[in-house]
Design a protein around this nucleic acid. Structure first.
Lengths: 175, 175
DNA sequence: TATTGTTATACTCTATAACTATA
DNA sequence: TATAGTTATAGAGTATAACAATA
């Protein structure tokens, strides 16, 4: 409902968040890139699950998810146990070593944010979170598919290392 | 200043924005991926400039910038004219064809946002923009370098990519 | 010797498609 | 035949390093 100039500015700012994201990803441990990091975070937050479920949460293809999980499994951070209910599936579970790794990632994220957002009040951070949540909801669960009748535009945004796990009490996740 | 759980949630939401971004990028014209799109947008917004300046605005390495520009130049969207003041440099300039291409991208973006953000008031969009702007500023121009406590603050090259004033009438920095 | 820009190489993330093994 | 997951291949984006031309 806003003017084109407003949307243009929003596109610009979302793009800037993408730049910020690249900086955040650079700070990840060399043995744990963003994909595996996101895997650990989601397994911690949602508990054990199957590949399909993880795919939905990551919003990426099964093939990609498979490799991220393999990366984590090779390092002992995740174990894949056969699903007794369907032998085609494997249940993914965070291992103690994975929990340790995740804690490392989490601590880094918290430290980084606490420094960078030093001037922000809790309420302001909460407000930002609320707006980002709403923004994503406005785009819906189908954000991966075309958004217009004919096709779409550009813009770009961000993906923080997806680091940071989170105490299971927090709602909302989609990602 | 906030609790770890709050930072964790912020990281999660920023990550979700990244997922949204992937969907948007998928919809770009096949002949104009995000890198070249960002190049056109910045040349339009800031006017002709040299490679080094564009690097700062994009906040990416010169080598990467060089290829994005080459992509655009091959399609006639950007011209690289010798810099009379320093023959090592080339001045980058948006061509009429590039302006046309940019308009296409711009129109698509505005249309997409107007659909997706149908329920948002102008004030709400403005508020989101303001928070994203502040977020980026909180990370500073040195968002590309280490972000942890022990890391050193960047010294030079204030990356204006973060400042983003808004002179020209058609802002918009896709990508 | 330092700087501007290009090119070569490599790595991460992603997607599509082919393949295995179950249902 | 359909589904869960893996693997092979390819493409975009980025970074580092070596190189070219000019300062």
């Amino acid at each position: 409902m806003a003017a084109q100039a407003l949307y243009a500015e929003l596109a610009r700012q979302l793009n800037a968040i993408g730049i910020l994201r690249r900086g955040l990803l650079r700070a990840l441990p060399v043995d744990c890139p963003s994909g595996p990091a996101a895997t650990l975070s989601l397994l911690h937050r949602h508990g054990e699950m199957r590949m399909g479920r993880l795919c939905e949460l990551l919003a990426i293809d099964m093939s990609v998810t498979s490799r991220h999980v393999a990366h984590a499994a090779e390092r002992g951070w995740v174990e894949r146990v056969p699903d007794p209910a369907d032998r085609r599936s494997r249940i993914l579970r965070l291992t103690p070593a994975g929990a340790v790794k995740l804690t490392e990632l989490h601590d880094r994220t918290a430290e980084m944010f606490s420094h960078r957002l030093d001037g922000w009040s809790d309420g302001e951070v909460e407000q930002l979170i609320a707006m980002l949540t709403r923004l994503r909801d406005s785009f819906g669960a189908d954000c991966r598919v075309p958004l217009l009748a004919h096709s779409v535009p550009a813009v770009s945004a961000a993906v923080p290392a997806s680091v940071s796990p989170a105490p299971p009490e927090l709602p909302h996740d989609h990602a």
